[in-house]
Amino acid sequence: MSRRLRETLGHPFWQAVLLMLAAYLVIVIIGWVSAPVPRTVVIQYMLSALVGVLIFVSDNEQRWSRFKEPIQRTLVEPERRRLRGALLVLVPALVGFVTFQQVRPTVSAPAALRSVHPASPVRITFRGKAMELATLENSLRASGDLAEHYAAGKRVYYQNCLPCHGDLLDGRGHFAHGFNPTPLPFDGSTIAQLRESFVFWRIAKGGPGLPREGAPWNSAMPVWEDFLTQEEIWQVIIFLYEQTGLNPRRLGVEGEGGHE
């Protein structure tokens, strides 16, 4: 038994089969541990592996003829008629099945090509008043008591933002499941990469204020200038950063996203 096994393992034909199996397993395992590998990529890898294996078996004359031998025998020997017949049925059936899988009609929603943080406009109008976003700063940071701004912003958040963005600021409030795209979570690092003026623009102008690449027609973010004053928006922005322990990106400050 072990002698036969050794003979089989030493035979270039079975070596080639094992190598191809090993190559396939490696791709599958990569798919498990990292992202799933698309089928076209799998086919490409397997073709490369096949070329490599063929180079290996045809590397010297003796190995090449040993490799061809079982194939040749299956093709011609009368004792192998059954195997030959089975292969002549099974291989076309497999090809037919794969072809059917390819051409069979399937339906899925088109991929949502959407920029989550598209470039902001240069200026916006807030309740009819023009604002330059490049120079817009959170005026409350320079005046008054931060704790008071935080408390006021907290109230604004809980009376307006909570149903979607949630108690945990994770974008999973009790209404979040009804919307697509889902509300933005604040507990990741996203808002640390944004300037406060950008956040102000996103709150004030909401979904309909997005540029085309942001798919404004799908966003459920309200136009908050219809509900909140400028001061209330600055307050809720302070709340967002304080509650999550993150800092907004600032112009000219190293280590918080760098220069513009």
């Binding site: 076309p92 090809v95 037919g96 072809t99 059917f100 051409v103």
Partner: peptide, 8 residues
């Protein structure tokens, strides 16, 4: 699929 099978 039938064409593919016949060809193969």
């Amino acid at each position: 699929p039938v064409v593919a099978m016949v060809l193969t």
